[in-house]
């Protein structure tokens, strides 16, 4: 019987090792799988490459993972936050590498990686610093820059509901990178607010089909990152 349910966040991330490449969902706090990230902080693994739109807020979630020196490189579109100095400090000290990618190019690189497309051409960033050193090609008289697909060992995402097959539905704008990161990783781990019986999710409305998801962890009442940040919380 297929059953992708895992009892705890700790168990779900137990085989993430030093040097792994990990996609982490979320746009700001919306969709950020904070309990899974904290389980990864607890594991103490190091040398991670993290692919994520942002670099975290305050001293919790992704910012905590970076603050504890566990991340050696981020692939990211917007590594600035009004509430966190964690990434900027490590970056200025040369303790973390940054690959800056336009947001839509980041999304398409992840989608391509998950769809078996090794590279593609995009009009985004042509003629800018972010296209320097990259192959360009002209189609129909317009220039495009080549970008590579991205794959990862693991993805950590947050969804709203799941069933034992790993089918996922999301909540509002918390969907953001979740569906494509599940596609682009060898092991996609979803924390969800509720696990329901197979058949309860309308097959017409499933956003991520279970084939893209390997593990599901129920976290009924996830921490709200903005409240932790407001209260000055640090993890652990």
């Amino acid at each position: 019987m297929i059953d992708k349910r895992i009892h705890s966040a700790a168990e779900a991330v137990a085989d993430i090792r030093d040097g792994a490449t990990v996609m982490i969902g979320g746009f700001g706090e919306a969709g950020s799988p904070i309990e899974l990230i904290h389980a990864l902080v607890d594991r103490g693994v190091r040398g991670l490459t993290v692919i994520s739109n942002n670099t975290g807020s305050g001293h919790v979630g992704l910012a905590a993972l970076i603050e504890h020196g566990q991340v050696s490189k981020v692939i990211c579109s917007y590594p600035r936050s009004a509430t966190s100095t964690v990434f900027p400090e490590r970056y200025r000290n040369g303790e973390i590498e940054l690959e800056l990618v336009p947001q839509g190019t980041l999304a398409e690189r992840i989608r391509a990686g998950g769809a078996g497309v090794p590279a593609f051409y995009t009009p985004t960033a042509v003629g800018t610093l972010l296209a320097e050193g990259k192959e360009t090609r002209s189609f129909g008289g317009r220039d495009f820059v080549m970008e590579y697909g991205l794959e990862a060992d693991f993805a950590l995402v947050r969804a709203d509901r799941a069933d034992r097959y790993g089918n996922l539905v999301y909540s509002k704008t918390a969907r953001n990178f979740g569906p494509i990161m599940c596609m682009a990783s060898r092991v996609a781990i979803a924390q969800v607010r509720e696990v329901v019986q197979a058949g309860e999710l309308d097959p017409e409305a499933i956003v991520t089909p279970g084939i893209f998801v390997q593990r599901v962890v129920e976290v009924r009442t996830p921490a709200q990152e903005s409240i932790l940040v407001r209260d000055g919380a640090r993890y652990p």
Binding site: S77, P79, R80, P102, V126
Partner: peptide, 12 residues
């Protein structure tokens, strides 16, 4: 700290 977000995609 360089940060670009979606601006390059929008204008393209």
């Amino acid at each position: 700290i360089p940060a670009v977000g979606g601006a390059m995609d929008l204008v393209a």
